[in-house]
Design a protein around this nucleic acid. Sequence first.
DNA 1: CGATCTATATATAACAG
DNA 2: TCTGTTATATATAGATC
Lengths: 126, 126
Amino acid sequence: MGRKIEMKKIEEITKRQVTFSKRRSSLIKKAEEIAVCCDVDVFFVAFSPSGRISKFCSQKSIEDMIHRYINLPVERRLTHIADVQEKVEKLRHLNHIKGDVSKIHFLEKQFVSLSILFHLINFLCH
Amino acid sequence: MGRKIEMKKIEEITKRQVTFSKRRSSLIKKAEEIAVCCDVDVFFVAFSPSGRISKFCSQKSIEDMIHRYINLPVERRLTHIADVQEKVEKLRHLNHIKGDVSKIHFLEKQFVSLSILFHLINFLCH
DNA sequence: CGATCTATATATAACAG
DNA sequence: TCTGTTATATATAGATC
């Protein structure tokens, strides 16, 4: 594809930006194709140094991915989810003792979904 | 690239899996190239219906991406982060009133990082 | 299945306007 | 910078092993 380039940072800024722009389009196109043709959920993000974010997600949101993940057989899920659930149980207990069911309750719910997301992402990235 | 295929789910299972395997390799290769040559952080995940996860992350973890993101000028960040901070302030206040600085404190810290991650991911996917 | 081959279809680096 | 063109380099569908 075009002249061959080395596998290292393109030092010339203009050239680097042009290359990014072109390759990003192709990458997202490929991501769409693999998602549709191969029936997989795909999520792609790129952060440019200037702070621009490029993304592609085959689902309405990553939460759908997570729901799909959670519906898998237990042995395929993160063992971490058990830890999260344990923490939530402790919180629930604490909550019961204090008799405060307003703010803490909202926080507890946030904690469940956020923790699952957090552990999932960490699992994916390590 | 080979014979042209339609932009729809490949019904034949074997063919679909072979196509996924081949395209996944290329996609990850492309993701690596754009990350290195264009100096961007890239994160890619694919969930197959059978529960297999394929991933590529140019950083040690998505947290590095987030730190990079947070170091951007304020005007480029999510307005949502302000909301998160507001919630944290309310929590801090609640915490102060109750005089409980143990469990709630740990939860508060979790909430900060998780909320930033959550809002970022949601922003990326909508 | 996975690896390799081969004929096409795509992607894209360099360049031009 | 942005868009379009073109000459190459890649990617890959289908076939064969």
